[in-house]
């Protein structure tokens, strides 16, 4: 069982027409594995996250994404989620008037095909919020509206735990978090991975989060493709050296 990204090419819509961002991404995440994707700003990391989830701004022009044998690239956004994919967003969207509780209930119902049982559900929601150190009053607040940056990120991970997808893509979940919030978020991801049959694509610019979430593999992402693979030691190397060496090499190739 695995999430397989095979030769993925993606265009983004711009005012001057489509522009190619991803130029052939290959990546296999097996169950139980955390893969860190690290790269400089503008390398296409977020495009990878959005195009996996099916954001309408991005078009997969060639290549495939297969989740436990199911091809995702021709599915709609909601179908991909129901197939088992989750995207923790870098900038979670505010939806005024839709309470967190109502939203989570709709999502859970859509994912499992039946409404969750009232009694256990309220308990589960409160537990998920409390795990991320969000007060239970958040359940009644409008989704992401008026949340601080850190609260939005913690709410994403609360959703990860509650909806429990097969594979999760975390798009710069660590950015903008102070050290306490980073620990809280990392603990949530680690609890999710403790199930052993889940997989995570951890997209990040900084190595800081790798102290709290141990990756099985680290990939360096430059100019729309993966240019280097390694174990946790590659993360440590990036911490010291930065991305310059990889960026120069990619330019020399181009």
């Amino acid at each position: 069982m695995s999430l397989v990204i095979n030769d993925l090419h993606v265009d983004v819509e711009t005012e001057s027409g489509p522009k190619q961002i991803l130029k052939g991404v290959n990546l296999t995440i097996d169950q139980g594995e955390v893969h860190a994707i690290m790269g400089p700003n503008g390398s296409g990391k977020s495009t990878l996250a959005y195009s996996l989830a099916g954001h309408p701004k991005y078009t997969i022009t060639s290549g495939t994404v297969t989740l436990d044998g199911v091809e995702l690239q021709d599915l709609t956004v909601d179908e991909r989620a129901r197939a088992g994919l989750f995207l923790a967003m870098q900038y979670p969207v505010e939806v005024p008037g839709v309470s967190v509780a109502n939203f989570l209930r709709s999502a859970k119902t859509a994912l499992t095909g039946e409404a969750p049982k009232v009694r256990t559900w309220v308990k589960d929601v409160n537990a998920a919020l409390s795990n991320l150190q969000l007060d239970s009053s958040f359940a009644q607040r409008s989704l992401n509206e008026g949340f601080s940056g850190g609260e939005k990120k913690r709410n994403e991970i609360a959703q990860l735990e509650l909806l429990n997808p097969k594979y999760a893509v975390l798009d710069e979940t660590d950015s903008g978090l102070d050290i306490d919030a980073l620990r809280i978020v990392a603990d949530g991801v680690n609890r999710y991975m403790d199930q052993r049959d889940r997989g995570v694509v951890l997209i990040t610019h900084y190595t800081r989060i790798l102290r709290y979430i141990k990756p099985d593999q680290v990939h360096v992402f430059v100019d729309g493709r993966i240019v280097a693979d390694g174990g946790p030691e590659l993360g440590e190397q990036l911490e010291v050296e930065g991305y310059d060496r990889f960026v120069s090499a990619a330019k020399a190739d181009a």
Binding site: T76, D78, A81, L87, V93, F103, S106, L111, Q159, L163
Partner: peptide, 14 residues
């Protein structure tokens, strides 16, 4: 569109 993307990315149909 961003609101609809967010909601549907959680499995909720359009």
């Amino acid at each position: 569109d961003e609101q609809l993307f967010y909601l549907t990315s959680r499995g909720i149909d359009p």
